[in-house]
Amino acid sequence: MTDGVVLDKVELRLGTKDFHFNCTLPAGAVTAVTGPSGSGKSTLLNLVAGFETPDRGHVLVGGEDVTHEHPSGRPVSLIFQDNNLFTHLDLFTNIGLGINPSLRLSADDRRAISKALQRVGLDGFEKRMPGTLSGGERQRAAFARALVRKKPVLLMDEPFAALDPGLRLSMAKLLLELHREVSNTVLIVTHDPDEVGRLADHAIFIDYGQILLQAPTTEFLARRDIPALAEFLSG
C-alpha cells in the first residue's frame, strides 16, 4: 500500500516561526493532528492542501510529489471549522461546485449530489440556504461535498470545535461511517483528547513547529513522558 501523506524533511519559515515536519502518515487511516495553539497544526494541513509551499523538502500525497502543485491539483478535500459553505448559494450549488467548479453538471452528478445529501442526513435540503441551517447541519453539508469529490485524502481543521458536545459525538460517528465506506486518508486537527480516542487510528503531537511524537492512538494516549503532551492530554 502506498503511503497516504508524506512530509519529507519539509522546512518552512512564516514570519519569525520555523517549521520542520518529517513524517509519513498511513493511507486509509485517520490521523489526529494535535498540539498547543500556534504550534503549527494548521500549517501542517496548509502544506498538504497547498496553501503553503515549503522552503525546502517535499510533500507527497499517494506516492506523488505535489510540492509545487496548485491546491486545485491536489487529491484532497477540505473541511474547516466554519465557513465551509458559500452562504449566498444553496446546498445543491455548494456541493455541485465540489464536482465541477464551473457547475457544469450531468444528470448523474445531480443524482450524486442528492444521494450525498441523503447519506449525511440532509435528505431534500438541495434548495436550502446555509443561513437557514444549524451549525451541525452545515458541517454535514460540508461532508456531503467531500463525499462527491471522491478525493483520497480528507483534511479537516477542527471540524467539530464549534459544535456542542452531544453533536460532536454524532458527527464523529458519521465521519467514521463515511471513512469506512470509502477508506480515505483522513487528517483531523483537534484540541480534544477524547476526540483523538474516538476517531483516530494514529496521532501526532506538534509543538513549536516540530512533530514530537507520532504513535498509534492507544500508545499516544498513554504517553506521559513528554511534558507538553501530558499537559494536552490532561487538559
Binding site: G50, S72, V76, F86, G98, P101
Partner: peptide
C-alpha cells in the same frame, strides 16, 4: 476560507 475553498475546488477566474 472562501478563497481556500475556491482554489481547492479548482475554480477558474470566471467561476
Amino acid at each position: 476560507e472562501y478563497w481556500q475553498l475556491a482554489s481547492s475546488l479548482g475554480m477558474r477566474p470566471f467561476s
